[in-house]
Design a binder for these strands. Structure first.
Lengths: 156, 156
DNA sequence: ACGGTGCTGGGCATTCTGTACAGCAGAAAC
DNA sequence: GTTTCTGCTGTACAGAATGCCCAGCACCGT
């Protein structure tokens, strides 16, 4: 577990220019094609690279509003709540956490008004005791991984 | 803005099997290759599909601990805090929000002990008044987009 | 009736992929 | 010191995919 400097450069390269193939990547990195292929295979079977799925922007789909909801769950209802939330398309992500709430989920909605509908649907479930929502205004740092990859690569 | 049913099927197909190319996708969808190519180009220039970058798992990089930190910021220090947090590799994501706190950020760390170091680094900045952290225990719904894509496709 | 748009099905040259092989260097084991 | 492993290099080849072009056709709004 862990990546070396070449792995790091490969991941960063792929992140910056996803369209390039193995051959082009090998040219950019200055190594043989077989090396890039072997590294890629290893990174994928390692689980470091989960895949190359399309990164879809919810805003472009018509869901420009993002919010985070902290949920407080009635004891013993955890798995029911999980299943309920998994069935709501606007729930993009769900975590169980320590701290104030029991769960934290990321929501999207078509508008601030539509967010009310989404929240009603989310919390309209008996296992949920209380919910507090924070609407996202700006996103100064979009979900990123490159800085972490570079750090991991330089450490070994 | 908005996608039709074919766009939706294309995105879902690509999400499930990212390695397939345009030709294979056209076979699966039962349409001509040119159509898939045109749709893909449109989705990308629309911004619906941002790209096909590698999805890297922080846990596999040696950062298995995830946490969300709610930050309270001293008035007028917002941009300084943003710049500070953007410089911390373990900050994967940063949002400014309404509600209790002023900012919400996603952190990763090598261990619970290491999380302390990360948090110290994050909050060790004068503009930050207070921080409360929730450590992620489980992730019942990993970041997903397919259900939303399907909903958008069936409405759109 | 008309032009515009989008899908189809085909063709072509170029390029990439998957796979295999032999050579070679460094590290680890004996 | 010598053997053995592992990983990288450089090359080769057949098969497949890509980028690009074009003509035909159906649908839609003007």
């Amino acid at each position: 577990m862990g990546i070396d400097e070449l792995d790091g450069r490969l991941i960063v390269l792929l992140a910056r220019e996803p369209r390039i193939g193995v051959l082009e990547a090998s040219r950019r990195l200055g190594v043989a094609r077989g090396t890039v292929q072997a590294r890629l295979d290893r990174l994928q079977s390692n689980g470091v690279i989960r895949g190359f799925g399309p990164q879809v922007d919810p805003a472009a789909l018509g869901y420009p509003v993002t919010a985070f909801a902290t949920l407080e769950i009635k004891q013993g209802q955890g798995s029911d709540v999980r299943a309920h939330l998994a069935g709501v398309p606007e729930v993009l992500e769900l975590h169980t956490t320590t701290g104030t709430g029991d769960m934290l989920c990321r929501l999207v909605a078509r508008s601030n008004a539509d967010l009310q509908r989404v929240i009603d649907r989310v919390v309209g479930f008996e296992g949920i005791v209380r919910a507090s929502t924070a609407i996202v205004m700006e996103n100064p740092v979009p979900l990123r991984i490159i800085p972490l990859v570079e750090q991991a690569a330089h450490e070994g």
